[in-house]
Design a protein around this nucleic acid. Structure first.
Lengths: 203, 203, 203, 203
DNA sequence: AATGAATGAGTATTCATTCAT
DNA sequence: TATGAATGAATACTCATTCAT
């Protein structure tokens, strides 16, 4: 990350965006609760209190980080779901889209993974639970359609399969680093190959 | 494990065990940082200060929870690794053992998943990093042996495969509830079937 | 052996009472907003954080101070109002009772005078507005009865008279010091003499 | 073509006056301490920092509000005191003048009532204490002259009488609203009637 | 004259921990 | 063993004030 510029003539929405990116990085690295406002401010090169010129509270920072990410995620997902693809192609497209989001919003995804369950308890973060539900409906529905269409195996517990697919995709945010040796598309390709065909060599 | 300095009389190990189980439950539900000592004490029916008769810090509680779990885990793992099985059978045994541990130490596993990365920074929790490394060596080595033996596919990035296998097993601790409709062995069986053979129906 | 009953969840009411008296003194002297928790703690000989063992918040301290005072005040007032006295005797008894309360709860009365209007905006302090209304009803009703009975003058705006009587009584809390040269009863007597007969010498 | 203003030397006194009136309104409504500079700025339609072009501190705003009010008050009082009236007429004139000031400077009077005691502690507000003393001298002196002249009763504690008269006049600022049903002169008349003759009906 | 952004000192509150009883 | 009361350091947040533009 390049060193921050002198705080001279910085326009407002850009500064906000910069600060949110900084905050997301720290939240992802240390966890939301363990992150002090002072640490974010340090990383941004300002004093703790100064953050409150831009944001109402620490909570509203995660809020903005998570909701921005989820909005963008669902734009991509909805496009896929509305495309009228078959079950296998839908799963492939959703997985690819997911890894792309992880690439673009790595920090936000990591925060989402670690904190969403505990944040969702508060009314303000209701949308996290809502999203989770939409998520489940989309994936589970596609898997069921695939079983009915004889594209996916029918001898597996479908909810187990769902959790299996869901978790492995998103947990990747904990180790993924943008600019590594694999592009998101390549990771998606290999991941899909494993999930769909298995890792055992076929005789 | 050698007793700490604090308790002057003989603190009942049974009471300790009960209190640790209570603490683990709360840590798993709320996260280590977000859990106050007072909350643990509430759950145990005592006052916050009273816990310090049994433990010398909140940190030493997680410490004992995690090290107890890891000790037991490695007992099982080492037995498997020393049994001289083939790569596929080793993977099968490790996965089955892992789900058994999740069944027995669900709370500890959940804590391990959420907190180990951030705890491992402290010298006191060095053993978490050590364990992680032993872990990687065991799994990665087995996978590599499997590729060499033409039991596992050789067209996949092996580190990607490792992370994929590792994460899917352990992330199960976040949704697994003992006493559910599937036994740990059944979950292991289905999980292995997915990982090894894939979820796509073979033509 | 005969042990004292030790209720578990009861923090010593005596200590609470002492601390509340200290807090009331400081609130009365400096104003609620201008009083820092640290100042109260200083006056009590402890650290700021320690107050939170006994009270939830600074707000709950004023709350308890004011509600305790108002409860006691209304006990006295209700006894007077239920006694079936004539209008003049009722006024006399209410005034005397008021100065007695000022004597007993000087600090609380001073706080009530300064802060009630601004505190009453919060739902928690709804009872302040309720009390104010009961207050007005009791005094205004008695004055009206007195006018009807030809005991009080009928050429005065009755609401003006009410405010005049009410304010003069309570504003005394700002200068009254217990143990001064006049007892509350003596102050009440002189005050009543002024209000009822006026300060001008009759020809 | 708009004329260039002189740099930072001469801010428009009209704008100053407007801003002070706005500030006084807010101070009176919320209390000096509880009023934030930002709230005053909001009410004035500008940003908090912009107020510092006109005033050098929040404190200097109250200072100017209070001193302006007191200067005007003493102009009126001095005129009365220098007029050579008898004690009763002097009291009548002072009271009438006071209600006129309340009518004209309601906000300032309310601030004075609530905050003067606690502000007077600072050297900058020494004049508040001075005024208080002059005030006491004027009223107490007139009352004493009245007792000597056999115009006022001599069976009352004179200091009690002074506080009684003083407080009831000024406390009116807390409920008085300009443009109500009574003019300041009418309120003064009724108030004086109560104080001088009492509220009891004479047989 | 006013803005946008920041400072720095403070404020209420939390919480792990201690310790006499 | 456990309690009651306190400590002390940290925490999120507030606000009067500054200053370059």
């Amino acid at each position: 990350m390049p060193t921050k510029k002198k705080p001279q003539a910085t326009p407002s929405p850009e500064r906000r965006g910069e600060l949110l990116a900084t905050a997301a990085e720290v939240f992802a690295a240390q966890g939301y609760n363990a992150t002090t406002v002072r640490r974010i401010a340090d990383a941004a090169g300002m004093l703790a209190g100064s953050l409150y010129y831009h944001f109402d509270s620490k909570e509203s920072m995660v809020d903005e980080i998570l909701s921005t990410f989820l909005n963008e995620l669902w734009e991509g997902y909805d496009a896929v779901l509305d495309a009228g693809l078959g079950p296998r192609e839908t799963i492939e497209a959703l997985v690819t889209e997911s890894f792309r989001e992880i690439d673009r919003h790595r920090a936000a995804v990591a925060i989402y993974q670690k904190e969403s369950q505990h944040l969702a308890a508060q009314p303000r973060f209701q949308y996290l639970a809502d999203s989770q539900q939409k998520f489940e409906k989309a994936w589970l529905g596609t898997l069921e359609r695939g079983v009915a269409d004889r594209v996916f195996r029918d001898d597996l517990d479908i909810r187990l399969t769902y959790r299996f697919v869901r978790d492995t995709v998103w947990v990747a945010a904990s180790w993924y680093r943008p600019g590594g040796q694999h592009s998101p598309e390549e990771i998606a390709r290999q991941y899909l190959s494993m999930v769909l065909e298995g890792i055992a060599l076929r005789g």
